[in-house]
């Protein structure tokens, strides 16, 4: 082989190696590289995600701020309706969604989650002076309002919800109006954490303590797939957060109605670190 041939071959090999290295690094730039992260949040859920005077507040908002602060970034919040939570991520309109978004096996196939940062059962909210509904069997024939984009209606259509007249209103505030003002709904059903939040701004409503439906919802911080290293950084930050006193402090600040009504609120709503490890940054739950 001549020297010219050897040089050409070496150059070709170097080019091939560079191309392979470039193709191999498929992960896009870090979501935290600019220091600002666009975060989709709810604006109509007092206690978890609400906007008052153009300012976001609630437990989702506090969690997003605390976790992003740990990785050297800060959130830029924007409103996301429940039914658009997945689409804003897959369409790259938001970097993260922190909006009482339940981790499910189906959603884990499309999105990465960091969580849970809180867990809650689905419950029932009624008018404060309405004592007709105290146990599950009292719901037979009653009109229960839910809204699209959540798993609430599906759960009520399961075995726990036999004989309940479930209907969907356009959004949460429509359900509250139906229950409180129009009185065309006998109850509103969604996650207890959200319901307790509503009672903080609607003192004439109450959560029925002994009625829950289905299994616990695990709320996660959602992101599009393809940002695993960012996801793992957030997981580390969440682990530290839930094992510190900050979690309990922030929870009671945002949702004071829960510790007031539920003496075992930390056991009921605080996630375990093992569950965080099982559900975070994975395509399927680790078992």
């Amino acid at each position: 082989m001549t020297t010219t041939h050897a040089t050409k071959l070496a150059a070709l090999l170097a080019l091939t190696a560079l191309t392979a290295a470039a193709c191999g690094s498929s992960e896009p730039p870090s979501l935290f590289s600019t220091g600002k992260v666009s975060v989709g949040a709810k604006n109509d859920q007092p206690g978890t995600g609400v906007v008052h005077n153009y300012k976001f507040s609630g437990f989702d908002i506090t969690v997003a701020r605390q976790i992003l602060k740990s990785v050297g970034a800060e959130p830029d919040f924007g409103i996301v309706p429940s039914e658009d939570r997945s689409a804003v991520l897959t369409d790259k309109k938001k970097d993260l969604v922190v909006a009482t978004f339940s981790i499910t096996v189906d959603r884990m196939k499309e999105l990465d989650f960091v969580g849970p940062y809180a867990s809650t059962y689905q419950g029932l909210m009624v008018r404060k002076n309405d004592n007709r509904i105290r146990k599950p069997s009292d719901l037979a024939g009653k009109r229960v309002c839910t809204w699209p984009g959540t798993t609430s209606a599906t759960t009520l259509q399961g075995p726990d919800g036999n004989h309940i007249a479930v209907y969907e209103a356009p959004d949460a505030s429509s359900c509250i109006t139906d229950l409180k003002t129009k009185k065309v709904a006998d109850a509103v059903s969604t996650d207890q954490m959200i319901l307790y939040g509503f009672t903080q701004e609607n003192p004439d409503l109450k959560v029925v303590p002994d009625i829950t439906f289905g299994s616990a919802n695990h709320y996660g911080i959602a992101m599009a797939k393809g940002h695993r290293s960012d996801c793992l950084k957030l997981r580390g930050a969440l682990r530290d957060y839930v094992t510190s006193n900050d979690w309990s402090h922030d929870f009671t600040t945002s949702l004071p109605s829960i510790p007031a009504a539920d003496p075992t609120w930390e056991t009921d709503f605080k996630p375990r670190v093992e569950t965080v490890d099982s559900l975070s940054c994975r395509d399927t739950p680790r078992t």
Partner: peptide, 13 residues
């Protein structure tokens, strides 16, 4: 062992 409804909250952990 799988969630009966994979569209609902997961119980696998």
């Amino acid at each position: 062992i799988a969630d009966h409804d994979p569209a609902g909250p997961t119980c696998l952990p």
